[in-house]
Design a protein around this nucleic acid. Sequence first.
DNA 1: ATTCTTTATCGTAATATTGCAATATACAAA
DNA 2: TTTGTATATTGCAATATTACGATAAAGAAT
Lengths: 112, 112
Amino acid sequence: MGLSKSDFFSEEQNELAAMLKALGHPARVAIMQFLVKQSSCICGDIVDVIPLAQPTISQHLKELKAVGLIQGTISGNAICYCVNPDKINFLQAAIGEFIPLNQACDPNSSCC
Amino acid sequence: MGLSKSDFFSEEQNELAAMLKALGHPARVAIMQFLVKQSSCICGDIVDVIPLAQPTISQHLKELKAVGLIQGTISGNAICYCVNPDKINFLQAAIGEFIPLNQACDPNSSCC
DNA sequence: ATTCTTTATCGTAATATTGCAATATACAAA
DNA sequence: TTTGTATATTGCAATATTACGATAAAGAAT
């Protein structure tokens, strides 16, 4: 159906999935990397760095903003985007929970 | 177009995005959480835990397997899935790089 | 006021994803 | 060999995503 049965899953599962999904596109990964590299939020030149049309970039930024991974504030003419470290920390911790602490069989064993 | 211009982006960007995308669905998040909770790869009962039809679960497992996040080995009749900690570690490190080290403006400043 | 610059929105075509019923495959058990 | 159990594949309908041209909106600069 193309629609996930998000009603069943928990709030946490849905939010985590939404954030991961937002990052699950090379253009958005590239945007994040660029913003971090700037180490400041003097922005507006993302379009020059990524070979996608301006409306497309705007759309990708919107998606990253929607899940809180980046923030944008109006600065006169331009808009100033920067990464929200809190969300990244949350993501990193959530991913860390996917590491099995005491996995009974290691990936090289006969089982896995 | 629905097709990302993945030719432009680097191998790393594409691979990272693919892994994040694979996790970007609540059902697949739930599968990962279940596999980790098992702390062993005695599997086969994922279908009982997640309210999706067996072919749908199989498809989700296939996607997680395709990016290497999980591994499955045939164990007689059933198939034994378990998490690949290496890939999780890779992901966690990659996400960590999204944290701005010396961001010139903090999210509460006038800028961001 | 007009023009330029920057970002957002709308509309839309191409493609991808999600979900499942039906069916296939593969091994185990009887 | 037949039956049962576990997983995969196929086919398809519903929906979502991606990309971009055209256009709008909003402030800056002249």
